[in-house]
Amino acid sequence: MIRPVGEHGLLAETGSLELSHRVHAALRAERPEGVVEIVPGPETVLVVAPGADQGRLRARLEAVVDRERGRTGAGAAEGPVVTIPVVYDGADLDSVAALAGIPVAEVISRHCGRELVVGWLGFAPGFAYLTGLDPVLEMPRLDTPRTSVPAGSVAVAGPYSAVYPGPSPGGWRLLGRTSVQVWDVAADPPSLFRPGMRVRFEPVAA
């Protein structure tokens, strides 16, 4: 289903993050005329195209969604795996271990044990919701968010992990830190993480 979003936007319902990524990638590869933004979400892709023929764009979007839905087995996540080295010395490492009922070493091995996929970005520029977290590490946010979390903090909350791209307030549970700069306005693109990208964390010594 394609829903209108004002005069210039269309929201394609994909129903799954994997299809969102495929539609997002397809639209980026063959961008319809006039399209300014292509924004994937867990179950949708928003397309914004001021001045474009909305009827034609809608037909095009429907065709892309149908085509990508039919491509079964084609994994959304392609391209290389980005490895993020992490020093696991986060302030919440012990409490995460206690909440999960496992030793700290197992928190680390479970966090590193799976390949994650960049779901979508939001909250702040370059802040990626990394999906595919080991369910044992799923836990609620902190009751009281921190007023400042340093850039490079590696954290978990709910079914997601993330790397804080810059210093900001935050309620996620901190497992460690990375020296990798995931957000750099001087780089093109400025964000290391893009929707659909595969990510793996790797423990390193401090």
Partner: peptide, 30 residues
């Protein structure tokens, strides 16, 4: 609602039921 792309001018309604009209610095997803 799963997070989804937002546009300027969107009339977003938080649980309070009191609407917010998004202007230029609106979050890109909500």
């Amino acid at each position: 609602l799963p997070s989804e792309g937002m546009v300027v001018g969107a009339v977003q309604v938080p649980p309070s039921g009191q609407p917010i009209v998004f202007l230029a610095d609106h979050p890109p997803t909500g």
